[in-house]
């Protein structure tokens, strides 16, 4: 489990555009870096990040080896109802990590 910082407002007004920020502790090892013995350090990157709002996918991003370590994502979302916001990402080995927050729209 990677350390992660998630910033989603706890509440918002109907129709408000909120900012969601996600900072994941991850080496984003490119797979191109030679080690002392000439072999390559195996690739270990996050391959995709998804945001779901009430079960509906509102953002889907593919990540590639050129993205720096500890990727930071910030994006906007218009909210119109109280619901669950899920951030989930998949790594090179297919492992999925998930952060769940609830937003109150009043």
């Amino acid at each position: 489990m990677a350390d992660v910082l998630v910033n989603i407002p706890e509440s918002a007004a109907p129709g408000e555009i909120i900012e969601i920020k996600l900072l994941i502790s991850h080496p984003m090892e490119t797979g191109f870096r030679p080690l002392a013995d000439g072999t390559l350090q195996p690739r270990d990157i996050i391959t995709s990040v998804r945001c779901l709002y009430g079960g509906e996918t509102v953002l889907e991003v593919d990540l590639h080896p050129a993205i720096s370590a500890n990727p930071f994502l910030a994006f906007h979302l218009r909210v119109d109802r109280s619901d669950e916001i899920v951030l989930e990402w998949t790594d090179w080995y297919g492992e999925v990590q998930r952060e769940v927050r609830q937003i109150e729209v009043v």
Binding site: L23, S25, N70, F72
Partner: peptide, 15 residues
């Protein structure tokens, strides 16, 4: 603090 990767080290440090 939400964008500063140093805060990830703080999280690990707290643990």
């Amino acid at each position: 603090d939400m964008a500063n990767p140093g805060m990830l080290a703080v999280l690990a440090g707290e643990r």
